[in-house]
Design a protein around this nucleic acid. Structure first.
Lengths: 195, 195, 195, 195
DNA sequence: AATGAATGAGCCTTCATTCAT
DNA sequence: GATGAATGAAGGCTCATTCAT
């Protein structure tokens, strides 16, 4: 009677949509938005070109959907064990961040690649702002716990430092003193504040 | 100032070439490389499409030439009065840098926009490295003069902080606490180091 | 009424088939054949895309089926009361026709829209001929009853005039003197012929 | 000095534009607007696809330009010898019109094919109105000269009749009594009106 | 040196059609 | 009968590049 259970359809849809999102995220991160054709996205996802348009109205909307997806991912990324020592948490998150920079993590590259494109800036401004705030949020609490007199300022400084290091690494490659910078960040930011 | 000038300036004697370079730099900074067609570059420069190809073999080579041009500009940009107080110099350069960030300076936007494009990274890696080193160079000396134990490290940190702030401002717009960040940078980096 | 009915109605027993035909007729009339996608037809009919292909092998065959359907409709449209005054009948049919023109009747628009499409003309020529003859038929009798010496000629002239008026109204919109044309037609064609 | 005289360029432009207009008019008339791809237009004109966009911003604008072109053509088509006998003029124009109908004249087919397309009607309404008025204009004078009490009404009726005959011929093909209709029109409209 | 008409590959997108369930 | 996910050919349009002058 029922031609194909609606649950089946929902599952198919969900799976395909997910596959497209992840493939596109990866490809955009790897080649950039403008250099990744919809055909290439389809090929990379192992599906047909037309199917993408079953889920996303346009390349732009696909881009937005990826941002939404990223925000979910970041949300789910718990900032270390909330209960544990804040110094430890901060150090762990810093280590992880440096690891992402060094590995050329796709989420990281995706955002940097999109956000700095003048042609896209206005379109994604809404999302990049959200992403930045999302990334910043856990650090407000952490720097407060560490006794920083102005934890918001500290969080912004920490984030700027991390982003700048990422940019430097992109610009200079292995010539960039990533190891020394990590030590510097750990030494400068990841400690209790006194007085 | 530098020995390479004569050779390079020779390559650019032509007024048209110069005009194309500047127009393209401006347009690429404003709209991005991929969103600026060669026609648009020609229009913006007030010359014909074909003329560009008299001076540059391709869009890519035009891009490279702009980087060469930028390096000369940066070269010519003397870092304040070399003789004066290093603290003063550093403060002045910091102020100028923040000003560029806030104004969306075209040289700044150009480099950020190109360098973070995955599809272009490999192509321009050679140049971005040079640019970074060029930007870094005066700070080695300055931080040494300020008595920093590891002036190279300090220069990298300072540069990373500045770049990160620029990125943050791009991402969040006027929501970003640019003023507080400037104070922070001035307070943290632009002072004599003791003991 | 007509002997072919039983066979043709049998082919259309299914409620879905009927719904598709009517929806497609309406949509084709409203948006045109080429601008109405099969998806749009399905949506407009409230059924699934695939179901259309259960009843019609292709978009073209759907078009043909609509013509068949139209012919049935026209067949069922009795030309006024056959017994009554022929002048009255002709006047009534003329009024009705002008009403259809003014309202942009869907049957009318459908046929005009399809028939004048060069790409479709060869395909539907068979049907448009039938439709024309069908529309013409009652007028042969009427003009004969009115005493026209050449009722066939009169019917063709009347039909041409009506079709031309319809076209004029399409081309010029409300600027077209529809009212005056109606009076003209009533005055010129809808009267007894003497001598 | 001058790279290519601007007059040369103007000539090239004019020639190409003209070639495209005529080819597109012919193709649209032959295959219909929606069934003629821009590639096909280019092929038919013997030029490259991209060149069309050097002269027309879009397929739609090409369509509009064709209408403008048609209006020029119609304007240049003088309605017989203005000085001669009005009956003669009307007969000549009628003969010519029937000839166009029978030959499937491209100007005629183009307009009919476009004007009755629901998807295009709104777009070209402005032009079809103009075309109709342009076609109508000479007949106002002629029917006045023939002594018709309401020459405007007569012109509209004549035009409607001619258009309806054209439509009938399209619908029924050679089965349509074109010859008899011509005689009818000549007999009915192309004569002096008395009393 | 300079022009801009001309080319054609490639992009985003649409849509008739198929098919597993 | 019925569904809608999936396909891929084809369409409109852009743009880096070439070339005759």
């Amino acid at each position: 009677m029922s031609p194909k259970s609606s649950r089946q359809f929902a599952a198919m849809r969900s799976e395909s949509r997910q596959k497209i999102l992840e493939s596109a995220l990866e490809l955009f991160a790897l080649k950039g938005y403008h250099s990744s054709s919809m055909s290439a996205v389809a090929r990379h996802a192992g599906i047909s070109k037309g199917l993408i348009y079953n889920y996303f109205r346009s390349k732009e909307e696909l881009l937005f959907a990826i941002f939404d997806y990223l925000l979910q991912i970041f949300d789910a990324l718990s900032p270390g064990q909330p209960g544990s020592d804040p110094v430890m948490q901060l150090r762990q998150m810093t280590e992880k961040n440096f690891d992402m920079i060094e590995r050329g993590d796709k989420h990281y590259r995706f955002i940097t690649g999109i956000m700095t494109q003048p042609a896209l800036q206005d379109l994604v401004h809404h999302y990049t702002g959200k992403v930045m705030r999302e990334k910043l949020r856990p650090f407000f609490r952490l720097f407060a716990q560490l006794g920083y007199p102005d934890p918001v300022q500290a969080a912004y400084s920490y984030a700027a430092m991390m982003d700048g290091i990422g940019l430097g690494y992109i610009a200079m490659g292995d010539e960039y003193p990533l190891g020394k910078m990590k030590e510097y960040v750990l030494r400068t930011f990841c400690k209790k504040q006194e007085s």
